[in-house]
């Protein structure tokens, strides 16, 4: 309830979730979703009858070996892919029927090279409602300030006017996080956003993301293959088996926030990582995906 109160700063778009609805239903319900790529001999089943509920305000990490379909789930929720079977519901209604604001960051920063960092961050305000209708009026005022304030929070205050190629990979990824959050999305989808970065930059960005999340409290689905990352950032870890992906572990993580690198050295943190690792290893060796896991590599 307090979360809902905090998030009233922005006017809700038409068709937005009524507060009572958001309490009674999980934000995202994935029910028996399967997805098959290709046809005939080349048919690949990426997902097989997967179900997952994501309550409002939760921070869920999807972990699993590569090719297990965790990114596929994210793309289905983002409506970049349609499931072959099954349903996805957003606050109880079929996906597509409800307009929720989505922010997404990918493994590559995917900044538009012809726009300055500032204009890249402002892109969601230009495209998505309700910001779009005021774009012309506010792009040189309120929206610009908002983008620059967010850039300052991730340590990019002097770089608003730079072009993406003038920034390092880590800095581009910071800007990409800003772009995913500038329109204060209800749902934040992160597809291995730190996967291509070095260890130190990655750990720095965990803190950046944690701070932004604690401030805005969007519902988050984070896809990663880094167990430490998932345990550090998420409230809940969902482990998937190798292809075709099934959910084999669903575990809550209750460390107090803000978490710090010190948290990762606590015995129970190390023990959790250890346990999840062996579960993934077992699933790989014994599960139906035992052969495909090797073949997919």
């Amino acid at each position: 309830m307090t979360m809902a109160a905090e998030r009233t700063a922005i006017p809700s778009p038409p068709g937005a979730i009524a507060p009572t609805e958001s309490l009674s239903r999980p934000l995202i319900q994935i029910e028996d979703v399967s997805l098959t790529y290709g046809r005939g001999e080349r048919e690949v089943q990426a997902l097989s009858r997967t179900s997952l509920d994501v309550p409002n305000g939760d921070f869920v990490a999807l972990v699993g070996p590569s090719g297990c379909g965790k990114s596929t789930i994210l793309k289905i929720v983002a409506q970049l892919l349609s499931p072959s079977e099954g349903h996805v519901f957003v606050v109880g209604r079929e996906i597509g029927a409800v307009a929720i604001r989505i922010g997404m960051a990918f493994q590559n920063p995917t900044l538009l090279p012809w726009l300055s960092i500032r204009d890249n961050v402002m892109l969601p305000l230009k495209i998505s409602q309700p910001f779009r209708r005021d774009w012309r009026r506010k792009k040189n005022g309120e929206y610009r300030d908002r983008a620059e304030a967010l850039l300052a929070k991730v340590g990019l205050s002097g770089f608003a006017g730079h072009y993406p190629w003038q920034l390092s990979g880590g800095m581009q990824q910071r800007a990409s996080l800003c772009r995913a959050l500038v329109h204060e999305p209800t749902l934040l989808l992160l597809d291995e956003p730190f996967g291509a970065l070095d260890q130190f930059t990655r750990e720095e960005l965990w803190d950046v993301l944690q701070a932004l999340w604690m401030e805005q409290k969007p519902t988050v689905l984070l896809v990663t293959h880094d167990l430490r990352e998932s345990a550090y950032l998420a409230n809940r870890i969902v482990v998937m088996s190798a292809r075709p992906g099934r959910i084999i572990v669903d575990e809550r993580v209750d460390y107090a926030r803000p978490r710090s690198i010190e948290t990762t050295f606590r015995p129970d943190f190390v023990e959790l990582n250890h346990r999840l690792r062996s579960l993934i290893f077992e699933a790989r060796a014994a599960g139906p995906g035992a052969v495909p896991a090797g073949a997919a590599a």
Binding site: A78, Q79, L80, A99, I102, G103, M104, F106, T110, L112, L123, P124, I127, S128, R179, H183, L189
Partner: peptide
């Protein structure tokens, strides 16, 4: 995809 997630 960046634009499509924004319902462009």
């Amino acid at each position: 995809d960046v634009l499509r997630t924004l319902r462009a």
